[in-house]
Design a protein around this nucleic acid. Sequence first.
DNA 1: CCTCACACCTGGGTGC
DNA 2: TGCACCCAGGTGTGAG
Length: 350
Amino acid sequence: MPELPEVEVVRAGLAPAVTGATVASVTVFDERSLRRHPGPSEDFVARLVGRSFTSAVRRGKFLWLPLAPVSSKTQETRPEPHDSARFAPEAHRSPAFSAAPSEALVVHLGMSGQVLLREPGAPDDALTRIRIELSSPVHGILRMNFADQRVFGSMAIEDLTPTRDGQPGGYAGQLPVVEPVETSPALASRPPRSAPALIPRSVAHIARDPLDPAFDERAFFAALAKRRTGIKRALLDQSLISGIGNIYADEALWAARIHYDQQTGTLSRATARTLLAEVRHVLAKALGEGGTSFDAQYVNVNGASGYFSHSLNAYGQQGKPCPRCGRPIVREQFMNRGSHFCPHCQRLRR
DNA sequence: CCTCACACCTGGGTGC
DNA sequence: TGCACCCAGGTGTGAG
């Protein structure tokens, strides 16, 4: 499931199931899904079996499950706090976390990937490319099926490296609402916890997403001013801003009344701010509705669909009246894909 | 360095 | 029914 809201739905569904769970077995049905893994499938399996996950982290459309360091003494899984009540695990505060994860299972869903949680023995989902059987101290035995029609998605084991800005690598769950009994201004302004400042190698070049508190707005606006390209190209460039795909690009541009090929350098700072606000709004709204799904290809870890497709104003609405002005929405071929917009509300300006 | 076209893939829907 | 053709939510690479 491609864009940020859909990947976040998967991350949130996966987190409670995988956190603290140990990999019992791995079956690779299609090696093409390991395209990004640096090594043969035997290596992928060997590096995963017996390991346990510490959390589920996401930046933009990339998802990763950090692996607890291999203990030379014992394979015993440590008790960990429930995921819904914390950020990613900390590597330094408690003695139990004396060693930070140094590698992670990196998942990208591509155009059609799904991660589905199933009971053991359940019939395999169609197009399952990789099956990972987990043993969870809370949920018992679980299957994590990676299904992918077009095989643009992938799984890989990768090293984790420190983030450039020293901020958390990505989003790993809700911050706990922990109000200090005696609230001092200094304490209140400081986040109660921080995720590890680590990121998989292949994700390091991806910009933070606009829902990340550490997203660098100034750098984003500066990059827009400097670029010589259309605004939609820029929104889809994951090294500038991550998490946006074709649907939410079209939706945010419609909301901000900007033509997809408007040159980035011509946008005023105020217009760029409006656009960023609309991007955040549309992503957050879709997240609240469980993501966008048109068919069974886009589902959460239980196979259920989201509802955001009912809220689309431009994407896929060609021929229908613009919800703002009533004139028909148009679809044009752009970047080898469809661009949906209202020619009246979203005009090219020089 | 920046920008852009293209390759990588399968399966569902549509129209003849 | 069969079949050609079009469509699909993404990313990495390499040419210019």
